[in-house]
Amino acid sequence: MKRYIVGPTLMVCLVLMVGLAFAADSLTVQVQTTKLRKDAKFWAPVLATLKAGDKVTLDRAQGDWVFVSTSAGQSGWLHNSAVTTKDIQLSDSGGTLQAGASTDEITLAGKGFTKEVEDEYGKTRGVSFKAVEAMSAYRVSDQEIEAFLKAGKLADWGVSR
């Protein structure tokens, strides 16, 4: 008897999973900043810069990249590690949250182990974040990366043995 139940049940579950996967066409940027690019690669031209909490609409996926459109009407590619299907609520002032949202689907950015806790930790434990700030401040630009890859014959500029 059991096998007559398990088969249809798995089928229903599969249909539900597929349905849910296609239901989410709204994505939220989950990293501090990310770049909307013309092609699905990191060295492609930048069309716009998006920030944490920005919402985009998913059009299609290709490998690890998603083609999206922004609220400003621009379309381009984002790497899927920069976005989440969860709704991120951010405040526009001082890292505290706007009231209103209260469902479990919301990622409570600006709350938890954040700047407020770090400040308290630094103060009570006498920990300095100066060296960490200096480390964070150094960034490799898109131009530097492209020149580095080209000169080293890496990525798209590689020559197979």
Binding site: Q30, A52, F113, K115, E118, Y121, V127, F129, M135, S136
Partner: peptide, 23 residues
């Protein structure tokens, strides 16, 4: 955990490692 929380925990871990070794 959110990306932001991960980052702030990482900053304190980094501060600890730097205080032990120096950069």
């Amino acid at each position: 955990m959110t990306e932001e929380e991960e980052y702030y925990i990482g900053r304190a871990v980094a501060a600890d490692i730097i205080s032990r070794y120096g950069v």
